[in-house]
Amino acid sequence: MKITKFLITLISITILTFMHTHQRIEAIKLSYSINEREAALHKLLDRRRELEYNVAKLKTPTHLEFKLAKEDIKLVLPERWQVFEAAGLREEGARKTRPLLLTAIMGLFSLESEARATPSIE
């Protein structure tokens, strides 16, 4: 009886010890895996920063000027006589910012222009 109890205790302790050791090993393996993923994440974040820098550089006025010159694209500002302010555009803008309900009410009472050109389906 005593020997049986002793053996059971010994086996239990052995099993618990194995389980503990196994868990420690798994934790360490997980650490390595986390390390690798962290390193990969940092690499991607660093790459992202590099790309942000590249994008910022491509958008600089100097670079854009250089590209325009290289492609021989000539942009000029309009002369004063070429600038027309169309009254309808102002109304369109106002219409877009007006609340929907107010627009509907104004529509009932024909308080805005009725004719509105729409693009041809053809």
Partner: peptide, 16 residues
């Protein structure tokens, strides 16, 4: 022009 400031001298943009 970049700031899109309207002309303020008389005889600026023509209005339709």
């Amino acid at each position: 022009r970049y700031m899109k400031i309207e002309y303020d001298k008389p005889g600026g943009a023509v209005k339709l």
